[in-house]
Amino acid sequence: MASVTGTAPALSTGASAPPERRRSNWVPYALLLPGLLWLFVFFVVPMITLFSQSLQEGSIDEGYTFTGNVGIYAEALQSYFPQLLRSIGYAASATVLALLLGYPLAYFMALKAGRWKNVLLVLVIAPFFTSFLIRTLAWQTILSDVGPVTSFARSIGLTNLLQAVGLTSNDNLMASKFAVICGLTYNFLPFMILPLYASLERLDPRLVEAAGDLYASPAQGFRFVTWPLSLPGVVAGTLLTFIPAAGDFINSKLLGNTQTVMIGQVIDAQFLRVLNYPLAAALSFVLLVLILALVMAYVRKAGTEELV
């Protein structure tokens, strides 16, 4: 009650300073509250349940009891280490590909497109108007064994090349590592392009001019000025691509074969078909920790706090 009478005059006159300060102290926290509450209910609580689930034993019919069975983590790692490694590998490949494809595009959009900028931005976002599943299914058609893409790839010898480097196992494109990585790259490309675009858009073109004025060739100007200044976008883009790609289970399911199973697909199967909840929960946790560790090492290496 005391605080109510204390703030009321301040609100009406806006003159006395201390009540003002008190008000601005709790406002930011109040603004945080809905978000924090949301995260608590839908992230923290499920994480705890998931962790506890991983340490339970039993079956779906007889119910689960908490036994603190840490051995499940050893079992999970032992049984599905190849799938884990493969997920990281595929996600990393897709991230690098998305960067190679996305950087020039984002560069063009941000610095050269002029009045076409907005049109191109809409085109980048356009795939989101269709569901993730439909878009991936479309790739089945695109890469189908009898489709024009595959026959073209055959005629230029691409299929042979892919087979030679082990990305496909026959002269088709579908149901292969190649198809899965293509699908991942395609699906997460916008998440690469948008942060890159944002950081390149902020780049002052006069800095590139200044580099040229100081004897830097266009290539050197890119290397010493444009690239380092776009690093925040590169870091954000690679994280936004890599993290979901590593846990993805749609692409490997729809575009891959039995040799391209990713960890997301395993978790999906353990949860929904095998109904081995503790193992599925343990695998989820292993994936989470692995990604966290990789991301932390990467961010530290990229040194984003040094960047402006």
Binding site: R206, E209, A210, A211, D213, F224, V225, L229, E306
Partner: peptide
């Protein structure tokens, strides 16, 4: 072999 002092200085921030 010409250098410019730009109006905005254009110093490399990184």
């Amino acid at each position: 072999n010409v250098n410019t002092v730009f109006q905005s200085y254009a110093l490399f921030p990184h």
